[in-house]
């Protein structure tokens, strides 16, 4: 079972409320799809500048695995107040700990609402139905 302290997007990002901020990352499923289980298959990750304003669903970064470049999209709107730049140099963190040390951006959200996003249980069902 995936962590139930956060919400999930169908595009395999997660968002977790942390006080007045929200932290965003990608799920273990996304990492598995990108890397095929090999840490070394993740090659590059570009994260945005602090201060950028994001709309819900907007692309905030890009990640390259061996053979594919994929967008990173935010499940919620807000202003980026911190990025986890350590993962740009240590992409293996995404494989070993996508839920905590593998967080990507922290935002000051436009709204506290997480409507439309899935619980961990619903995300599991979504994965089971789609794959």
């Amino acid at each position: 079972m995936r962590p139930d302290d956060r919400k999930y997007a169908p595009t395999h990002e997660w968002v977790k409320i942390d006080g007045d901020t929200m932290v965003i990352g990608i799920t273990d499923f996304a990492v598995q799809e990108l890397s095929n289980g090999n840490d070394s298959d993740l090659v590059y990750c570009d994260l945005p500048e602090v201060g950028r304003i994001l709309d819900k669903g907007e692309t905030f970064g890009e990640i390259e695995s061996v053979k594919a470049v994929s967008d990173l999209n935010t499940p919620v709107a807000g202003e980026i107040i911190e990025i986890n730049s350590s993962i740009e140099e240590h992409l293996e963190i995404l494989s070993t700990d996508p839920w905590n040390n593998g967080w990507m951006i922290r935002i000051k959200p436009t709204s506290k609402s997480l409507d439309g996003l899935m619980s961990a249980e619903d995300y599991e069902k979504h994965l089971a139905a789609a794959h």
Binding site: T11, T59, K67, A68, V69, S70, D71, N73
Partner: peptide
């Protein structure tokens, strides 16, 4: 996963995944 023949690579491949 690359396609090879004669012990060498013969097909280059790459993907972009964006907005579904």
């Amino acid at each position: 996963l690359d396609l090879v023949w004669d012990g060498r690579k013969g097909v280059g491949s790459a993907q972009r995944r964006k907005s579904g």
